[in-house]
């Protein structure tokens, strides 16, 4: 806790006036004013008229939204509403499903995903974390360094990156003597943090999280959420979650989706306290109970 406080203090020096204002708002218990915060942030993902199909079945219908850089955006909605498909469209994972096609424009870091030629390089900039931890069948260290090795990073550098990323996700102290062991003996929470470190090792600018804590206990979930908040200081995070409390805790803005459409996209606070659309209100009330 104390080390966190120190970190905040040091960061204060480098904050822009707008960020300072934002921080002030948080510290004084006031709500962050999305409009003023937005002024300093540009959209890193722009979606215009996105529709998507699996064969003849339409799964996304005319989505429009802008996702701002360096903040957490949550996608919520009932199962089958298309939020995961949307998330996986952003790094072209949906496109590997036979029969998938999309219409409309999805611009990720200024590049239209339809025109991505080198999918592999593109995906290095857009990391992903899945519903369940998915370590590779190799040692903890190799999990972190495999992709770097394939991309031609030197061995010395790989080791440094691996250690730095393990440290970043708070695993280094626990695992430093077990780097050559199998990751499958770790707890679910540790495995998921290892997978996060693995995704971070290739230095993505955007992180896509597909219900990353749905298989974890509350303590591990909180630990991950703290990590996401810290990461959002320098990267853009989009999270799909069924856990509305989670969206409330960590997301600055939240989109509610239903039946392949975005019903409402608002600041998280507004969406949960005074939803504009009756469908949002019903969903939020039912979920919170």
């Amino acid at each position: 806790m104390t080390s966190d406080m120190v970190a905040v203090d040091q960061d204060l020096v480098e904050l822009t006036p707008a960020e300072l204002k934002e921080l002030e708002a948080v510290l004084t218990g006031g709500r962050i004013d999305v409009v003023t915060a937005e002024a300093t942030k540009s959209s890193v993902i722009q979606v215009k008229g996105l529709s998507a199909y699996f064969g003849h079945k339409q799964v996304l219908n005319n989505l429009n939204l802008d996702i701002k850089e360096r903040e957490i955006t949550a996608l919520i909605g009932p199962s089958g509403c298309g939020k995961t498909t949307f998330l996986r469209t952003l790094n072209r994972m949906s496109h590997s499903v036979p029969g998938f096609r999309h219409e409309g424009e999805v611009s990720v870091m200024g590049q239209d995903i339809a025109s991505v030629k080198d999918v592999e390089s593109f995906r290095r900039k857009v990391g992903m974390l899945f519903q369940r931890p998915n370590p590779f069948p190799m040692s903890i260290l190799d999990n972190l360094t495999l992709a770097l090795r394939l991309f031609g990073v030197s061995k010395k550098e790989r080791l440094e990156i691996a250690k730095a990323k393990l440290d970043e996700v708070g695993l280094y102290e626990d695992l430093k003597d077990r780097l050559h062991h199998s990751p499958f003996a770790l707890s679910g929470g540790q495995q998921q943090r290892l997978c996060l470190a693995r995704a971070l090792a290739v230095e993505p600018r955007i992180l896509l999280l597909d219900e990353p804590a749905s298989a974890l206990d509350p303590k591990s979930t909180r630990m991950l959420e703290d990590l996401f908040m810290r990461l959002a200081e320098h990267m853009t995070i989009v999270i799909v979650t069924h856990n509305l409390a989670q969206a409330r805790r960590i997301a600055k803005r939240t989109a509610f989706m239903e039946a392949g459409e975005i019903v409402e996209f608002e600041s998280t606070h507004a969406l949960f306290t005074k939803p504009n659309d009756p469908r949002t209100r019903v969903y939020v009330e039912e979920q919170i109970g």
Partner: peptide, 19 residues
């Protein structure tokens, strides 16, 4: 899931199969 993880990391389909 592990294969998807490899693909999402930017590995080619050959690399994800091989490793």
């Amino acid at each position: 899931l592990p294969i998807e993880g490899a693909r999402a990391l930017g590995m080619t389909s050959y690399e994800s199969m091989r490793h």
